[in-house]
């Protein structure tokens, strides 16, 4: 079958990635169809669905999950899974907010010093997340513990650390400059949207062009073979989980800024479910392999749309769970290899 007598066609086809033809086109593009269908349906049924406000809101709300899903895509591409993402969001937000609030600068007008202080606080948050990612990656690759167990434990630990940092009550950031960060607009676009576009572009570049992503994919496809061609599995695995954790940290910090408060017990709770669903809808295989960043972007928007639609049509939240389940199953079914 594969080895028929056809003479080898040595010249590269222009389309290297999708060399399989017609069927795969439909499959590869089923996501936009879905997406369109949802938009069309909603512009009919949902009042003021197509307004700028709605778009603005949807995108801002989609922001944290989108970032987490991007990181999750790489993790899943390596054959792993990360359920500690929500807890990492919480711990980085808690660290950032706690440090930021330490200084009297927090409520002063914008100044160089303030910006420096804010950057310093955010860096500490990112660092905390990085430590979590490091822990995930190290435990998984050095001690060969299943990713789901490692990240479950890290989820447990990270969330309780976040709660210990903040104490019983949520930390309010109302009236601080930090809240302004969440409302910042540059040339009319909310900062969340800008970061999101930047993150998507960066991840697309990473996934398509970098040696790192190729190695991640190789580990996901065939771990033994990856070891035997000399890939440093430890370093790549740690890299993947740290990358994911840093994206989570950005999501966590910005989410704290948007809401004006940090509730360590709730921030990022269950976001791993939506993120994993987004990745699954996007077509990245759970067994590892090619990271489909664009697919994830569609998946994330789709999952978020479900929430938005349910909210705007005043349907109770419970139905959104069912709707998500249906979307997830249909999307994955539509793209599977037949």
């Amino acid at each position: 079958m594969p080895d028929s007598d056809t003479p080898a066609k040595l010249l590269a086809s222009a389309n290297m990635q999708h060399a399989t033809g017609g069927m795969s086109f439909v499959k590869a593009h089923s996501m936009p169809f879905f997406f369109l269908a949802l938009i069309v349906l909603n512009s009919i049924f949902t009042p003021s669905f197509l307004s700028i406000d709605t778009l603005d809101n949807t995108l801002r709300q989609a922001f944290p999950m989108m970032l987490v899903a991007l990181g999750m895509t790489m993790v899943i591409s390596s054959g792993g899974i990360d359920i500690s993402v929500g807890a990492i969001m919480a711990v980085s937000a808690a660290v950032t907010a706690r440090i930021f609030a330490l200084s009297v600068l927090a409520t002063t007008p914008v100044s160089v010093l303030l910006i420096l202080w804010m950057a310093c606080a955010i860096c500490c948050g990112l660092l905390a997340a990085g430590v979590c990612g490091l822990l995930n990656g190290m435990l998984i690759s050095k001690f060969k513990i299943q990713p789901i167990i490692v990240t479950l434990i890290v989820m447990f630990v990270a969330r309780s650390v976040a709660q210990m940092i903040l104490g019983e009550l949520p930390l309010s950031l109302m009236g601080t400059r930090f809240e302004d960060l969440g409302r910042l607009r540059i040339l009319g676009a909310p900062i969340q949207v800008l970061i999101m576009i930047g993150a998507v572009a960066a991840m697309l570049f990473i996934a398509k062009k970098t040696v790192f992503a190729r190695r991640v994919e190789a580990i996901g496809e065939n771990r033994r073979a990856a070891r035997l061609v000399g890939i440093n599995i430890f370093r790549v695995t740690v890299g993947v989980y740290v990358l994911c954790a840093v994206l989570c940290a950005i999501a966590g910090v910005m989410e704290a800024a948007r809401g004006g408060r940090v509730d360590a017990g709730r921030l990022g709770m269950f976001i791993e479910l939506d993120a994993i669903a987004a990745v699954a809808i996007g077509g990245t295989a759970f067994s590892g392999g090619r990271a489909r960043i664009l697919g994830t972007v569609f998946g994330a928007v789709l999952v978020q749309l479900v929430t938005v639609i349910v909210n705007m049509n005043d349907i109770s939240y419970h139905y959104s769970l069912i709707l998500k389940a249906v979307v997830l199953v249909t999307a994955v079914w539509a793209q599977k290899d037949k």
């Binding site: 699954a280 759970f286 199953v329 994955v332």
Partner: peptide, 19 residues
Amino acid sequence: VKIPPFTATLAMMLGVRGL
């Protein structure tokens, strides 16, 4: 339907909870 177990049961997790 041949959906991977992780995805299928994740969908059921959401759906049943909604129910």
